[in-house]
Simulated assay, not measured.
Amino acid sequence: MANILGNLTQALFLGLVLLAGMIGYNLSAGADTMAVVMGTLRTAHSWAGVLWIGLLYYFNFVQIPTMPSVPAELKPGVTKYIAPKALLYFRHAALLTVILGLAIAGHAGYLGPALMLQEGFRVIGIGMWLGLIMAFNVWFLIWPNQKIALGIVDGDADAKAKAGKTAMIFSRTNFVLSFPMLYCMIVQGNGLGA
C-alpha cells in the first residue's frame, strides 16, 4: 500500500477507481442515470473547487506570510519549484471549477436566471458571479503578475516587486471573496436561495 500511496499518480488513480466503484454501485442499484451523471459532475465541481480554494488558502495562510522569513538562499526553492507548480494547479482548478459549475447550472436550467439574479436564484447567482470574478482574477491578474514576480517572464527588480504586490493584492481579494462565494454555493442547496 505504501508503494501506491507514496506515488501521487497511483494514489490519484486509486481514488478515481474508488469513485468509479461508487458510480457503478449507484447505477447497479437502479439509480437514475441522469441523477448519477449530475452527481458525478457535482462531485468533480466540488473536487476542483476544493483544490482551487485550498491552494488559495495555502497561498494566503502559508506561502505569502512565510516568504519574508525564508532565508534568501532558500527562496529559489519556493519561487522556482513550489510556487510555479502550485500556480499551475491553482489556475487550472479555477478553470475546471467554473466550467463544471456553468455546465451543471446550464443542464439544471438555472444558468440564465442565476446569472441575471432572478428571484429564487439570487444567492447562487451571487456565488456564481463571485466565482467568475475570482477566476478572472486568477487568469488575468494573478497569473500574469506571478509570471513576472517569479522570473518566468523577464522583468527587472522593480517590475518583479510591483508584480508580486499586485498578485498578492488580487490573491487577497480572492481570499476575501471566497467567504461569501462559499456561503452562497452552500446555502442555495439548503433552500436559502432567495
Rank of each mutant, 00 (worst) to 15 (best):
L95W: 09
I124S: 04
P84Q: 00
L16D: 10
A2W: 02
Y183F: 14
P71F: 09
P68M: 14
Q10N: 12
V37R: 10
G39D: 09
G54R: 10
L56V: 01
T9Y: 04
F13N: 08
V70W: 08
N145A: 04
F175C: 12
A103T: 04
L18N: 08
L74I: 09
F121W: 06
P71N: 15
G193D: 04
L95A: 09
P76R: 00
F61M: 15
A103M: 08
L111F: 02
M1P: 07
L100A: 06
V36M: 06
L102W: 03
F175D: 14
I133H: 00
Y89S: 13
L177I: 01
I142M: 01
Y58E: 15
M181Q: 07
G106A: 04
G164N: 12
R122Y: 01
L102N: 03
K160D: 11
K147R: 09
M185H: 02
Q63K: 15
Y57R: 13
M22P: 15
G151K: 09
R91D: 03
G112M: 15
P71K: 15
H45N: 02
G109A: 13
G109D: 06
I142G: 05
I124T: 02
L5W: 05
I104W: 12
L111W: 08
K80R: 09
W47Y: 10
L5N: 10
L55D: 10
L177S: 06
L192C: 02
G191F: 04
S28H: 04
I169R: 11
L115V: 06
L96I: 06
G112C: 04
T66L: 13
N190M: 13
M38Y: 11
G101P: 04
A108E: 01
L102R: 03
K165A: 14
Q188E: 11
G49R: 02
E119A: 00
I104R: 03
I152D: 02
A94C: 01
L19Q: 10
L55T: 07
F179R: 09
F179E: 14
F121I: 08
A149C: 12
T97A: 03
G21A: 12
F140M: 02
Y57H: 13
R172S: 14
G77D: 04
D158G: 14
L87E: 01
P180Q: 01
P113Q: 07
L51M: 14
A20V: 13
A157P: 15
V62F: 10
L8C: 13
L14R: 08
Y58A: 11
T79N: 02
V37L: 07
S171R: 08
L115I: 07
F61S: 12
M67T: 12
W52R: 05
L87M: 03
L51D: 10
P65S: 12
F13E: 06
P84G: 00
Y57K: 08
E119H: 05
A86T: 11
N174E: 02
W143H: 01
P65Y: 11
A167W: 01
A135G: 00
P68D: 15
